[in-house]
Simulated assay, not measured.
Amino acid sequence: MAIQLHDSSKGLEQLQILHALQLAPRAPWAQLSGVLGVDSSTLSRRWRRLNDAGEAWIACQPGYRADWYYSQPYGSTAYVEVTCEAGYQDSVISALSRIPCVWTVECTTGSRDLLLTVTTPSWAELDRIVREQLGRIDGVVKTVTNPLRRFYVQPGDWRLNALTADQEQAILTMRTNQHAPDPGSGRRQPSPFERQIVKVLAADGRLSMAQIADATGRSISGVSRVLHGLEASGLLSFRLDFNQHVIGYKLLSTLWIEADQNQLDKIGAFLRRQSRTVRECVSMVGQANLYVHMWVQDLSAVDLLEAQLIQRFPGTRILDRWLSTRFAKRAGHLIDNDGRRHGFVPSLGL
């Protein structure tokens, strides 16, 4: 039975843990204890229960702002729409989920059956993968590739509403003090040891320093120093992922928008401020040049955002809208029909 987080005082405490981990995914429980007012052993136990049940996990991946995400082996990313032959969707999902360069598999309503996030070293390789691998899966009728240009809102930017403003600020300050940003150092390729750390953390981003040291054969102090540098430089990012159904966010809505190209940065800035609704916003190449994905509790939130966009940015058109019925894979993590994590497929290059 799924753990329900939105229907009890204990559930509220667990939501606060999740919100805290959105802000600081690897924060020690001893530090979060003072902010949340719950002893560290209780925090650890409740997290372990959620994690063991597949209801929540910490994803780890190359930072979107790092050069190496857009070079080898992460050079070119696109949303690929997939139309399936009737009766083949489950087998198509199973085949797609095993492919390392397919980061995300999303089941949708509307004109496509699935929406994939696919990342490859180059546009030529992306074209080859779509034609020779994705397009040849039994049951795939049609694919449409939509190249990505720029992330305005990353999936890890979406926030729950379980902490007070003071608690949020305390955790953000704590994290900033530990990992002071160093944007300049992100303009480089990671070392073999740094890549090894990312590979170890890919399946479980909350592994302890001792566990990482054991897996890499390095000292705890060496691992700690390098990992802190990766986070500060933006070469590595962590995010909390979870079964959105257990927290009451059962509606996953997507808008494809046509907007004035000169207005995209302003629209992106506006959508970044909608951190309780907008989970992802990316500019694309195509007639729809903006993708907006929302996690909401009620479709009225989607209606409100549409109205605000059209009012604030005249000429903006909503070309398509649909609901996501479920994720089968998200950032490499496999997800079952009930929204629980049940496995992991390492991405290319990790």
Rank of each mutant, 00 (worst) to 15 (best):
G34F: 09
R273V: 00
F242R: 09
T254P: 02
C281S: 14
W68Y: 14
I197W: 00
R206D: 09
I3T: 08
I197P: 02
L207N: 09
G63C: 15
W158K: 12
R112P: 03
A30T: 15
N243K: 09
A259T: 07
R317I: 03
R273S: 14
P346Y: 12
Q308F: 00
G75W: 13
L350E: 11
G87W: 02
P100H: 04
G110L: 10
S33C: 15
L15S: 10
D320I: 01
M284Q: 10
C84I: 05
Y79Q: 10
Y152Q: 04
R239T: 00
V80H: 04
Q263N: 13
A180Q: 15
D67K: 13
L172T: 02
A165N: 08
D260G: 15
R150T: 11
K10M: 02
V82S: 05
D320H: 12
G343Y: 07
S94M: 06
L348N: 10
V102W: 00
Q154D: 05
T316C: 10
V144I: 06
G229T: 02
P183M: 13
T164G: 08
W322R: 10
A288P: 09
Q297P: 00
V130E: 03
T109M: 14
L236S: 03
S347V: 00
L126E: 06
F242M: 12
L348Q: 13
T176M: 04
E280A: 11
V246R: 02
L50Q: 01
N161S: 09
S219T: 12
L240V: 06
V153A: 04
T176Y: 03
D67I: 14
Q211L: 13
A24Q: 07
E258M: 06
C101R: 07
V246T: 12
I220F: 05
W47E: 01
R279T: 01
G339E: 12
L160E: 01
F270T: 01
R330E: 06
E168Y: 03
W68N: 01
D39P: 15
L116D: 00
I335F: 08
R159S: 01
H179L: 14
G184Q: 10
S191T: 15
R128F: 01
G75P: 11
V345E: 09
P100V: 05
T277Q: 08
N337A: 12
S221T: 12
P73H: 04
L319H: 13
R131Y: 05
A215N: 12
R150Y: 14
T143Q: 11
R98V: 04
Q167K: 09
E306H: 04
S233M: 05
R321G: 14
M174T: 00
Q167R: 13
E280T: 09
V285Y: 11
Q133V: 10
R225D: 03
I17D: 03
V80S: 04
